[in-house]
Simulated assay, not measured.
Amino acid sequence: MEIQRVAERSQRVVVEVEKAIIGKRNLLRQIMTAVLAGGHVLLEDFPGLGKTLLANSFATALGLAFKRIQFTPDLLPGDITGGYVFNRASGEFELRTGPLFANIVLADEINRASPKTQSALLEAMQEYQVTLEGETMLLPRPFLVLATQNPIEYEGTFPLPEAQLDRFLMKLSVGYPSPDEEQEILRRRRERQQDNVTLKPITNAKELSEMREAVEQVYVDPDIEQYMVALVTATRKDSRIAVGASPRASLAFLKLARAWAVLDGRSYIIPDDVKQFITPVLAHRLILQPDLWMKRNAAQDVIHKVTSAVPVPVIEV
Rank of each mutant, 00 (worst) to 15 (best):
K206W: 07
V6A: 13
V310I: 10
T235R: 12
R212L: 01
E182P: 06
L160T: 10
T279A: 13
E18S: 15
R236M: 08
D45L: 05
G156L: 05
T198H: 11
R96Y: 12
R25D: 12
L54P: 02
E213Q: 14
P47W: 11
F86D: 07
R248M: 01
Q300H: 13
Y219F: 14
M125E: 03
Y219M: 08
S178C: 02
F66E: 10
A283W: 00
S178N: 04
P140A: 12
A257S: 15
Q164C: 01
L282N: 07
I110D: 00
D301L: 11
A205G: 08
N56I: 00
E184N: 09
A261W: 03
T198A: 12
K171S: 11
L53A: 11
R236I: 10
P271A: 12
E123F: 01
P179Y: 13
A7P: 09
D195Q: 14
G39C: 06
G63N: 07
K116S: 10
A61I: 05
R167C: 04
E8Y: 04
S119Q: 03
N87P: 00
P247R: 09
R112P: 00
V105Q: 04
L286D: 04
G39S: 05
G63W: 02
A89Q: 15
M211A: 12
A214E: 12
E109W: 01
L54C: 06
A261P: 05
S267K: 11
A245G: 08
S119M: 02
L172V: 12
I269H: 06
A249M: 04
E216R: 15
E191Q: 14
D74C: 10
L254M: 12
A252I: 11
K305L: 07
L231N: 10
P77R: 08
T203L: 06
L100M: 13
N26Q: 15
K24W: 05
D291S: 14
E207I: 13
Q70G: 03
L286Y: 05
T157D: 03
G156V: 04
I69H: 02
L43C: 05
V281D: 01
P177C: 08
V229P: 00
V314N: 09
F46Q: 11
P247G: 09
D238K: 04
F66H: 09
I80Y: 02
S178K: 13
A309M: 09
Y176E: 12
R258K: 15
M211E: 10
I278F: 02
V232G: 05
F277K: 07
L256R: 08
A242L: 14
V6G: 07
T52M: 06
G78N: 10
G98D: 07
R68D: 09
I152Q: 10
P47G: 11
P140Y: 12
H304P: 00
G48V: 13
K171N: 04
G175C: 09
N103A: 11
